[in-house]
Design a protein around this nucleic acid. Structure first.
Lengths: 330, 330
DNA sequence: CTGAAAGCGCTAACAC
DNA sequence: GTGTTAGCGCTTTCAG
């Protein structure tokens, strides 16, 4: 910049002003422009950040990007942030607590503008209250804004859709250990509505899908359960707490020659498409991913700009049912 | 840091030394540690970057994250970079040239350590030669290292797998306009091997899947083509230049009541799984995504460390065939 | 081993 | 409008 100033016969301040769009005399403006061009000058963001103590980085902490839901979410979050002039530091935690913490530490060192986090641990409680943060899905501290799908409603919708399709007996497939708020809400909604509609239900514990052995055990248990129920009750529906689990269940039932959706119907949760224009394979309660990203980034931006007085808002985004190949058409 | 120095009764230099792991007297070390703790000091990365003119950021430019291939790739790239101590700035370009350029501009301003790019434009020619960069899939400048799958081989393998399954007539579904090197290689490999094995083939132009109308036209054309071929020749195989296209083709044929893989077999390209532990729906030539990420990050790191003298290496990662549901079992 | 001081490149007063 | 200058928080000589 000093070089540019010298080359253009002006002071550094003038160059700085020009770059930052302040008023400069047209002749000077032209001269500076040329000098910048000539010397291939690009301003040093680190120096600017140091001086202004402002940053345009946002850290996005999430368990993975390798799933339809998270990749779509990442897509939208990046898009919105980019449109608002932020840069996104992708921080994949794999639900690893120490990784999560290292990302927070990094965020502090970088003096980032803010953090968007999806964490099922108590990560938020390690974030200093002075750094803008918005959580997606879960925030138990109550100190930060939260954007989440209406999980309870999603559970209810699933039960209702089953009911419309003649289901009289249902299985809820979810995690019982590691219970955390969004999952609990999905279950409660489902159960409550089952009770309302007179659907008989039972609950099956799903182990983490990473653990192949346990997961196979679960699938076996499930298909036994399905065979039992088929004899005892009428039409059967399985509500899985995620599409990933729903897909695995469908694959298992296919193997067992149990016809989906004729004999058993399945509804998953998330409803993200693998590509922007693809059909859903499993029927699902779709989270409005774009809306979640939109709200989260918007709220973060406001927080950064200081217009919002950390009210720790709770935003609930509506979900809806999406017909896939695992429920009968009505 | 000044505060810490004062609190610990030492100079800033000592604090700096302590933080950077230089030798400090044990008593002093302890004192400094405590002061840091007490004052909740975290060092300012911007100031450090300014002084040392070193950065730990890597910009990752790619068309999207919202597809199995790119989300898996992003997952691995982030993982490897993180393990090497870098931070990843996610830069989704949507193949938009001006966005790509703005990311490069940003990278320059941030004085990032390096860039990893997947671009089908001439992006690389806009990157100053002094900034470390490695390309994935395509680099026409010849100035930067390139990591790519063996696309030609992939095409050949597809033809061979068809041949093993009795296919005597084939369609290649790929983009003819916008031809760029990886796609050309896939096609050539396929065609060459078809010739070798005496498979009759024809070529069909696939429009960008974003354009729904044109794409539907293509699908109709394809299914006509399939019906014609079925009468004329023996077993038919369709090789699509990507899994996304392959999936759409499969859906279309399902609609038309054409049985896959009994009547027509389909092989796609990429072979990425939607989730880490899921089955493939379409049979596919799988790119070794993890290996690509591994090589790309490794080469970038070397370049940054200056151990490598910009030899513009070309690395070719092997591909392999993955049986899905759209080819017959053998 | 530790302290004093220079300076990385920029912005923001402030004076002209 | 423009120039001068202080200083953001750190690392890094260079003395001691």
């Amino acid at each position: 910049m000093k070089d540019v100033a010298k080359d253009a016969n002006v002071s550094v301040a003038t160059v700085s002003n020009y770059i930052n769009g302040k008023k400069v005399r047209p002749e000077v403006e032209e001269q500076v422009r040329q000098s910048i061009e000539k010397l291939h000058y690009v301003r040093n963001a680190a120096a600017r950040a140091l001086k202004t103590s402002e940053s345009k980085y946002v850290v996005f902490v999430l368990p993975t990007v390798w799933s339809p839901f998270f990749s779509e979410l990442t897509f939208w979050v990046q898009q919105y942030l980019n449109d608002m002039g932020y840069k996104l530091i992708l921080s994949v935690s794999e639900n690893n607590y120490s990784k999560e913490k290292s990302y927070v530490k990094m965020a502090e060192e970088q003096r980032v503008a803010g953090i968007i986090s999806i964490s099922y641990s108590d990560l938020n409680s390690h974030v200093p209250a002075n750094i803008p943060l918005v959580s997606i899905e879960k925030d138990d501290t109550g100190m930060f804004p939260l954007v989440t799908s209406n999980n309870y409603d999603g559970g209810k919708i699933a039960a209702s859709e089953f009911h419309k399709r003649g289901v009289t007996s249902a299985i809820y497939a979810g995690t019982l250990h590691e219970e955390f708020s969004p999952m609990i809400a999905r279950k409660s909604g489902f159960i409550d509505q089952c009770n309302n509609l007179g659907i008989h239900y039972s609950i099956l514990d799903v182990p983490s899908s990473k653990n192949t052995e346990d997961f196979h055990k679960f699938l076996n248990q499930l298909s036994e359960s399905v065979k039992d129920k088929e004899a005892d009750f009428g039409k059967l529906g399985i509500f899985a707490y995620s599409d990933e689990v729903a897909i695995h269940i469908k694959e298992k039932l296919d193997e067992e020659k149990i016809k989906v959706p004729e004999q058993v119907q399945i509804i998953g949760f998330d409803g993200s498409k693998i590509y922007p224009n693809t059909k859903l394979t499993v029927s699902s309660i779709r989270q409005d991913v774009q809306q979640i990203a939109n709200k989260a980034t918007e709220i973060l931006d406001k927080q950064i700009k200081g217009n919002s007085e950390r009210e720790a808002s709770r935003i609930m985004v509506p979900v809806n049912f999406q017909q896939g190949l695992t429920t009968t058409s009505i």
